[in-house]
Simulated assay, not measured.
Amino acid sequence: MRKIVAYFLGVFLVFALGYQLMDPSFLLIADWLGPLFGSPLLVALMSIFLLLGDPLRFTVLLAIWGGVALLGGVIIRRRVSAVATMAAVYLFFLSVLAASVFDIIQTVSELGLIGGQQSPFSLLPPIPPGLTIARILEAPIVGRILEPLLGMIGTGTGVEAQRLIMDLATPLLIDFAEKLGVVCLAALAGTEVGRRIEPRFAPWSEGLRIKLGGRPGPFSAPAAARRAVLPGILSLILL
């Protein structure tokens, strides 16, 4: 039960915080291209920022993932379960990103932006105020992706193109792995914090468990009383 609560709470918090704390440049890009691609574009940009952003440059990512994983560890209070559940929350956004990109590709195909007779630029809405090409290139991750891709256009050999792809993918994978490590460490820390504060909330937690129809925990007052009485009963039987 605690794992389920921590999982869905973690997904909700990451969605909410990711949208609220996303870089303003991404919001401007979503406002610009939103009429063409709809909400999947905003979700894709948010997922890219959450998964592929540099946590050392954008400390808000450390706060989001570390805080959510810490809270999940406090709720679950089991090391392996906490790490597995919070890692599942993190990896869930890979599926969100994949689904959003798939929707965008379908929209591109329906609009005939690739292989169509008309120029793709003719369908683009006007750039909104406050958004410039320079700001697009300075947006998190966008510049790191576009620069190697633009360099790939001028390459004439497959070896150079492969090297550019590796130069593009390697830092993004490192950033992805760094945040996954932060999630696991924060979940472990939350587990220890939860175990330390658990005795203070044990009576309230056990009372709520019983009211909801659950069985008393092994350290609840009724269970402790039964364990204390059991040796006396066994002694009387043996006598």
Score class of each variant (00 low, 15 high):
residue 199 P to R: 00
residue 63 A to N: 14
residue 71 L to T: 06
residue 142 V to Q: 10
residue 46 M to F: 14
residue 136 I to L: 09
residue 234 L to V: 15
residue 118 Q to G: 10
residue 14 V to E: 00
residue 55 P to Q: 04
residue 214 G to M: 01
residue 46 M to K: 10
residue 25 S to I: 01
residue 13 L to N: 11
residue 169 A to D: 08
residue 172 L to D: 06
residue 79 R to F: 09
residue 222 P to M: 12
residue 52 L to H: 01
residue 168 L to I: 09
residue 102 F to V: 13
residue 166 M to H: 08
residue 38 G to A: 11
residue 27 L to H: 14
residue 8 F to K: 03
residue 213 G to M: 14
residue 190 G to Q: 05
residue 13 L to D: 12
residue 60 V to P: 06
residue 71 L to Y: 07
residue 84 A to E: 00
residue 112 G to P: 13
residue 187 A to P: 06
residue 24 P to Y: 14
residue 52 L to P: 00
residue 95 S to N: 09
residue 74 V to I: 14
residue 72 G to I: 02
residue 236 L to D: 01
residue 102 F to G: 15
residue 83 V to G: 00
residue 23 D to C: 10
residue 136 I to D: 03
residue 158 G to F: 03
residue 61 L to C: 05
residue 51 L to W: 09
residue 118 Q to D: 11
residue 81 S to Q: 07
residue 108 V to Y: 02
residue 29 I to P: 04
residue 69 A to N: 00
residue 39 S to L: 11
residue 223 A to C: 11
residue 7 Y to F: 15
residue 67 G to F: 11
residue 216 P to R: 15
residue 29 I to F: 08
residue 179 K to N: 09
residue 211 K to R: 15
residue 228 A to E: 07
residue 16 A to M: 09
residue 114 I to G: 07
residue 8 F to N: 10
residue 141 I to T: 01
residue 11 V to N: 03
residue 10 G to F: 03
residue 66 G to E: 01
residue 224 A to L: 15
residue 181 G to E: 01
residue 85 T to E: 03
residue 197 I to R: 02
residue 65 W to L: 09
residue 79 R to P: 12
residue 155 T to E: 12
residue 199 P to L: 01
residue 213 G to E: 07
residue 212 L to I: 08
residue 63 A to G: 13
residue 226 R to N: 06
residue 238 L to T: 13
residue 84 A to L: 10
residue 10 G to L: 00
residue 151 G to T: 08
residue 61 L to W: 00
residue 55 P to A: 00
residue 23 D to W: 13
residue 45 L to V: 15
residue 201 F to K: 02
residue 55 P to I: 04
residue 118 Q to C: 05
residue 42 L to N: 05
residue 201 F to W: 11
residue 224 A to V: 13
residue 235 S to P: 02
residue 31 D to H: 07
residue 179 K to F: 04
residue 200 R to V: 04
residue 156 G to M: 07
residue 67 G to I: 11
residue 230 L to N: 12
residue 143 G to H: 14
residue 42 L to Q: 13
residue 52 L to K: 00
residue 115 G to C: 04
residue 87 A to P: 02
residue 68 V to W: 01
residue 57 R to H: 13
residue 120 P to D: 03
residue 149 L to A: 06
residue 26 F to N: 13
residue 188 L to A: 03
residue 109 S to R: 12
residue 106 Q to S: 06
residue 88 A to G: 07
residue 104 I to E: 02
residue 176 F to L: 02
residue 220 S to Q: 14
residue 142 V to C: 13
residue 113 L to Y: 11
residue 122 S to T: 10
residue 73 G to R: 05
residue 145 I to K: 11
residue 151 G to Q: 12
residue 31 D to Y: 05
residue 212 L to Q: 10
residue 85 T to R: 09
residue 168 L to Y: 13
residue 7 Y to I: 08
